[in-house]
Amino acid sequence: MRWQEFEQAAPRIAALARERFTQEQLVLLGTVRRDGSPRISAVECDFTAADFCVGMMTPSTKASDLLRDPRVTAHSLPPGKENPLGDVKIFGRAVEVLDRREKDVYEDAIFARLDWRPPEPYHCFAFDITSAGFVRFEDGGRRWLAWREGEAEREEFLADGPC
């Protein structure tokens, strides 16, 4: 499901993700290389009314990864070992945005943030989200939120026990 639907299906995780990704303006993007090994890259991200998007210049190895294998992960930037803000993770598939009107909306979001528009040619990918999660270590344990497509958001606190 695209971002707008995700916000309705998993409102707490979506709010945490939007806040973090908007504040940081970057995500760690996980893609699958041609040989099947993982690739992780820091990329800028933007929200439109309906989508969570990332853009890449042409040619880009990340874009080649996604065009070949659309499985993708976005992870918030951890602010350090203690990470008091927690980690947000979004999983799904990248959908290349080819419609000119949708690309214009994406470019408007970038322009509002940076006063700049990406020159063509470039790749824009929207996330088709299938699952998401959030975890924060607090009060001697970890609090997590999780969601999978077709299920409700769930929350749990796990107290740390002996190793």
Score class of each variant (00 low, 15 high):
residue 45 C to N: 15
residue 41 S to F: 00
residue 10 A to M: 05
residue 94 A to G: 11
residue 140 G to W: 01
residue 48 T to Y: 02
residue 23 Q to P: 00
residue 162 P to A: 11
residue 47 F to T: 04
residue 162 P to R: 11
residue 60 S to E: 07
residue 149 E to Y: 05
residue 157 F to G: 04
residue 95 V to E: 11
residue 103 K to G: 00
residue 6 F to P: 03
residue 99 D to Y: 02
residue 55 G to H: 12
residue 82 E to D: 15
residue 82 E to M: 10
residue 102 E to S: 07
residue 74 A to M: 14
residue 125 F to S: 06
residue 47 F to N: 06
residue 75 H to Q: 07
residue 118 P to R: 11
residue 159 A to M: 08
residue 151 E to M: 10
residue 161 G to R: 14
residue 34 R to P: 01
residue 108 D to Y: 00
residue 84 P to L: 04
residue 26 L to G: 00
residue 152 A to T: 12
residue 94 A to D: 03
residue 100 R to E: 13
residue 120 E to N: 10
residue 30 G to C: 03
residue 62 K to A: 14
residue 140 G to P: 01
residue 72 V to S: 02
residue 76 S to L: 03
residue 121 P to T: 06
residue 2 R to M: 12
residue 98 L to F: 04
residue 8 Q to I: 09
residue 28 L to W: 15
residue 155 E to C: 05
residue 25 Q to R: 15
residue 111 F to D: 14
residue 11 P to Y: 09
residue 48 T to D: 04
residue 98 L to K: 14
residue 35 D to I: 06
residue 47 F to P: 05
residue 13 I to Q: 01
residue 17 A to W: 02
residue 102 E to T: 01
residue 91 F to W: 09
residue 131 S to A: 15
residue 20 R to E: 06
residue 159 A to V: 12
residue 87 D to V: 09
residue 78 P to W: 07
residue 118 P to W: 12
residue 66 L to N: 08
residue 110 I to P: 00
residue 52 F to V: 13
residue 19 E to S: 13
residue 80 G to P: 03
residue 56 M to P: 00
residue 89 K to S: 13
residue 70 P to D: 15
